[in-house]
């Protein structure tokens, strides 16, 4: 096999990983409809392609050809740029997810992630925090009360839950002694008892709850909240820009699932198979990630939405103290040499 320059290998990795992310996001739109159908004794989309597998493609084509409306009184520039801003952060965050260990690619040894940052967990949180801009700008520039209310709620919610999310990740960081996601994943590699889900179960629980709130998913989807806000921040959007918001949401869900896999389920590690080849690690990573993605859908089609004051109370009065307690307890247990 010819040896390719290192930069080209990076370009190939980036293209493959982003292609995979977008495909997963597309498939999630189908999975959402399929899972909702199954839970309601229905069959779901099955006309386009086998098992409806080409449905996302058909939807994409439909969105491309739909008319795009900009409401009167909207700020056209912000209105047009907001969906991209909403979709971008999730796509950026996937860059540091360590899918598997080292592989040999066109004569270069390289890790299976777009890049490896020593502070990758910080990077994910920093980029993820930008996601709120797309939503709040989209809601504000639409010149519609529903959109504005939806985006205000979304921002209040994301700010409140981000705190608990970060604190729960901090406990994991303390356990592994590193901000590098790859190091965090590798530290759990040796034994299933070392997986952070076993060592920090409360952090895992907090992370999972906050993960739903961070991505504006049920039961915390106040940004959309159809009964009272029509469609929330994307009420006024149409065509591909509307789809971009959803693409962003599904990408964010995928990235959050990847993050949960890395932080708590040891990334691609397989119990009782310590030196698994990279493809087995990748497969195990994808299985774990899919489990989280399914959890997203499962919860969405099971639980009703919270009331907004309940959501705020839960965030500030329950989750935040719990997260602080968890961090303190982890630190204390580590100091005592138990963990």
């Amino acid at each position: 096999m010819p040896e390719l320059p290192l930069w080209l290998v990076w370009v190939i990795k980036a293209a493959v990983i982003y292609g995979a992310l977008l495909s997963v996001a597309g498939l999630m739109s189908l999975a959402e409809r399929k899972v909702s159908a199954w839970m309601q004794y229905r069959i779901g989309p099955n006309r386009v392609g086998p098992f409806g597998l080409l449905q996302p493609l058909a939807d994409g084509v439909k969105f491309m050809f739909k008319e795009e409306l900009v409401p009167a009184g909207a700020n056209p520039f912000l209105f047009r740029i907001a969906p991209a801003l909403a979709a971008l952060p999730a796509m950026l965050a996937v860059a540091v997810i360590p899918f598997a260990g080292e592989i040999e690619l066109f004569g270069q040894r390289t890790t299976l992630s777009v890049t490896d940052l020593p502070i990758s967990s910080l990077y994910v949180l920093a980029v993820g925090g930008l996601g709120i801009y797309g939503i709040i700008l989209g809601g504000w520039s639409s010149n519609s009360k529903y959109s504005l209310l939806g985006s205000l709620r979304a921002s209040a919610q994301m700010v409140s839950y981000e705190l608990s999310l970060i604190l729960s990740i901090l406990a994991v960081v303390a356990l592994s002694g590193s901000l590098d996601l790859r190091v965090i994943a590798d530290a759990q590699q040796a034994d299933a008892a070392l997986w952070n889900i076993a060592r920090a179960p409360l952090a895992f629980l907090l992370f999972v709850v906050c993960m739903f709130a961070e991505t504006n998913r049920h039961p915390f989807d106040f940004a959309e909240s159809e009964p009272e806000l029509v469609g929330g921040f994307h009420t006024e959007y149409s065509a591909m820009r509307f789809a971009l918001f959803f693409l962003g949401e599904y990408c964010a869900m995928t990235v959050m699932s990847c993050l949960a896999t890395v932080l708590f389920l040891a990334g691609g590690a397989i119990p009782f198979w310590p030196d698994a080849p990279w493809w087995a690690e990748l497969a195990s990573f994808l299985v774990k990630m899919s489990a989280f993605l399914f959890l997203y859908l499962w919860v969405r089609w099971t639980l009703p939405r919270f009331r907004f004051d309940q959501l705020m109370r839960l965030g500030w009065k329950v989750l935040l103290p719990l997260a602080l307690f968890n961090l303190f307890a982890t630190a204390a247990l580590m100091a005592a040499g138990v963990l």
Binding site: M39, Y41, W298, T302
Partner: peptide, 11 residues
Amino acid sequence: SLRAMFRKRVT
């Protein structure tokens, strides 16, 4: 809802 996924379809 998980049990519902394996019930008979009505479609």
